[in-house]
Amino acid sequence: ATNIVGKVKWYNSTKNAGFIEQDNGGKDVFVHKSAVDAAGLHSLEEGQDVIFDLEEKQGKAYAVNLRIK
């Protein structure tokens, strides 16, 4: 899926990971530091509006192509 709108639920820069809550009510999506880095960002803030694509690896959904809304 592409161009999904959501809000950062939480992001821990020590653990280099967090979750994004989908505005469409879907399951929360894992976001890794690699996606944050690829977006040219240093970190994510709780409640921040984002747009992202979903990629599945080994049955788990990940946020990729992250951008700030």
Rank of each mutant, 00 (worst) to 15 (best):
E55T: 09
H32L: 08
Y11M: 06
N12T: 06
D28L: 14
G6P: 00
G6S: 01
S43V: 11
K69Q: 12
N65Y: 03
G59Q: 05
G59D: 08
A17I: 15
K33M: 06
I4R: 12
R67Q: 09
Q22S: 09
A38N: 07
E21N: 08
A35F: 04
S43F: 13
K60H: 09
V5I: 12
E45P: 07
D37F: 13
L54P: 00
Q48K: 05
N65G: 03
G47T: 03
D23F: 15
L44N: 00
S34E: 08
H32Q: 07
Q48S: 08
K57W: 12
G18D: 01
D49F: 15
G26M: 10
A61D: 08
L44T: 00
L41N: 02
K27Y: 08
G25A: 06
Y62F: 11
A17N: 09
A35C: 04
I4A: 06
Y11N: 02
I51E: 08
G40S: 06
I51M: 11
E45V: 14
D37W: 14
K9W: 02
L54M: 11
I68L: 13
V8M: 03
I20T: 00
N3C: 10
T14I: 12
Y11G: 02
S34V: 08
N12S: 14
I4Q: 10
F52H: 00
A38W: 06
V50K: 01
D53Y: 02
N12V: 06
E55D: 07
E45N: 11
L44R: 00
G47H: 05
L54E: 02
K7V: 08
V8T: 02
F52I: 03
K60S: 06
L41W: 11
G47V: 02
N12Q: 07
A35W: 04
Y11R: 02
Y62D: 03
I68D: 05
K69F: 13
A61W: 14
N24V: 07
Q58W: 14
L41I: 09
K33Q: 11
T14C: 14
E56T: 13
N24R: 10
W10A: 04
T14R: 14
K27P: 15
G25F: 07
S34T: 12
I68R: 05
A35P: 01
Q58L: 12
L66T: 01
Q58C: 14
H42P: 11
G26V: 06
G6D: 00
F19T: 06
I20H: 00
L44W: 02
L41H: 06
V29N: 00
I4P: 01
G59R: 05
K33A: 10
S13F: 10
I4C: 11
D28I: 11
G26Y: 08
Q58K: 12
Q22M: 13
K7E: 01
K57I: 11
A38H: 08
V36H: 01
E55H: 12
V50E: 00
R67V: 07
G25V: 06
G26P: 05
V36W: 04
G18L: 04
V64G: 03
E56V: 15
E46S: 15
A38G: 06
V29M: 02
W10S: 06
R67N: 04
Q22K: 08
V64P: 02
Q48W: 14
N12W: 08
I20C: 01
V31D: 00
K27F: 09
T14D: 11
G26S: 09
A35E: 08
W10I: 04
E45H: 15
V5K: 15
A61P: 08
K27G: 11
V29T: 04
K7Q: 05
E56L: 13
L41M: 09
V29I: 12
V64T: 10
V5N: 13
N16Y: 09
D28G: 09
S13M: 11
G25L: 06
V5L: 13
Q48I: 09
Y62A: 07
D53T: 04
A61E: 12
V31L: 07
V50R: 00
G6F: 01
E56H: 13
N16S: 11
L54S: 03
A39Q: 03
D53H: 03
T2F: 13
D23R: 15
G40L: 06
D23V: 15
L54W: 05
V31K: 00
V31M: 04
S34Y: 08
D49N: 13
G59I: 01
G47F: 04
D37P: 01
H32F: 07
N24L: 09
K33D: 02
K15C: 12
N16M: 13
W10L: 04
A35H: 05
K27V: 10
V64M: 05
A38Y: 06
G26K: 11
K9A: 04
L66R: 00
R67P: 02
K57L: 09
S43G: 13
Q58M: 13
Q58P: 06
A61H: 13
G18I: 04
A38Q: 10
E46N: 12
G25W: 06
D28K: 08
L66D: 01
V36K: 02
Q22V: 14
L54H: 02
Q58V: 08
E45F: 15
G18W: 10
L54Q: 04
V29W: 05
L54F: 05
K9P: 00
E56Q: 11
Y62S: 09
D53S: 04
E46K: 15
Q48G: 04
H32Y: 07
K7T: 08
V36T: 03
N65H: 08
A63G: 04
E46Y: 12
N12Y: 06
K7P: 00
E56G: 06
E46A: 15
G47A: 05
V36R: 02
K27W: 07
A17L: 14
I51G: 02
K57Q: 09
Q22T: 12
S13Y: 11
F52T: 01
N65I: 02
S13T: 12
K69P: 12
V50C: 03
G6K: 01
G40K: 07
A39I: 07
I4V: 12
V50G: 00
S34D: 09
I68Y: 06
H42G: 12
E46C: 13
